[in-house]
């Protein structure tokens, strides 16, 4: 396994705010990493730095290249889908395919046409005549036909209905991902990608506050559901978070052993969204 991204003290300052505050992280190949954070935490800035779309301070190496200086070379190996409506509105499906085929050395036309055959898109259709979901289908078909090593997805399913969202991630997982590829995805719909992630990164105020793979996360974080009588004993163990559901107390523990917790009640693996809410408590205050 090789390192795809290596960021050290990655810092980016906009006029008055610090979007990235000496963030450090490494991403290995063959992973699907969820970069999750509240609005304004620096997710998009981090992705833009990785893609060479913005200047920054600190060190950043993507596939061994500095994205600030070798963006055009880097883009042979990196693909990204930024948001929904970024395909140029005047373009036809056939023009998009012709163009990407001509400029991208790793594009496979047959593969792209194979993906498009599953959709309702026709070659002469213009982007401006498409729904948001169809634009994403086209973009995804173009991107999946490129044999890239790193795929960056920034809110790729924003504004799509649930059918398109499910199909998007399913296609990605079944037809695209393999051990030589790496995917970084940001989204607010955490529960939808939870089951496909291999790694999880939480970002808050420009810093990486959690960086773990999903197996370790299950070991490290435990959710305890207990009745009111055991609540004080549970509180004594220093939970990250506490909430009440149907008269039961639910505690979230970080690094407390299962042996200690088991006598107190029922143990569960916490969901990413619960973990996220607990970690980000107080962000907007």
């Amino acid at each position: 396994m090789s390192t795809v991204i290596d960021a050290r003290d990655l810092t980016k300052e906009y006029k008055s705010t610090l979007a990235l505050d000496a963030a450090n992280f490494q991403i290995e190949s063959g992973r699907i990493v969820g970069l999750i954070g509240p609005n304004g935490a620096g997710k998009t800035t981090a992705l833009k730095a990785i893609l060479g779309l913005t200047d920054f301070e600190g060190e950043l190496s993507v596939l061994g290249m500095d994205p600030r200086h070798h963006r055009d070379r880097l883009m042979r190996e990196v693909c990204f889908i930024a948001d929904v409506a970024v395909l140029p509105r005047w373009m036809r499906v056939s023009e998009a395919i012709d163009f990407v085929e001509a400029v991208h050395p790793r594009f496979n036309r047959a593969r792209c046409e194979h993906f498009l055959a599953r959709t309702k898109l026709t070659p002469s259709q213009k982007v401006k005549q498409m729904s948001k979901g169809m634009i994403v289908q086209l973009h995804l078909a173009l991107v999946m036909a490129i044999d890239a090593r790193l795929l960056v997805l920034d809110e790729p399913t924003l504004g799509l209905d649930i059918l398109y969202r499910k199909q998007f991630y399913q296609t990605l997982l079944e037809d695209y991902f393999d051990e030589n590829k790496t995917i970084i995805v940001t989204t607010h719909q955490v529960e939808e990608i939870e089951h496909i992630l291999t790694d999880l990164m939480f970002i808050r105020d420009g810093q990486i506050v959690l960086n773990t793979n999903m197996d370790d996360m299950g070991e490290r974080f435990v959710e305890l559901m207990t009745s009111a009588e055991h609540a004080d004993a549970a509180r004594a163990l220093g939970p990250l978070d506490e909430r009440h559901v149907f008269g039961k107390c639910v505690f979230l523990f970080d690094g407390v052993s299962r042996e200690q917790l088991e006598p107190l009640g029922e143990l569960r693996r916490p969901s990413v969204s619960d973990l996220f809410v607990a970690t980000m408590k107080g962000t907007y205050e």
Binding site: L51, L53, R71, D72, L74, M75, A82, V86, L87
Partner: peptide, 18 residues
């Protein structure tokens, strides 16, 4: 125009120099 409608992000995702 491509900065305004953000399609610049698509063009910049291709291996083409500025």
């Amino acid at each position: 125009d491509d900065r305004r409608d953000r399609s610049i992000l698509f063009w910049k995702s291709l291996p083409i120099s500025d």
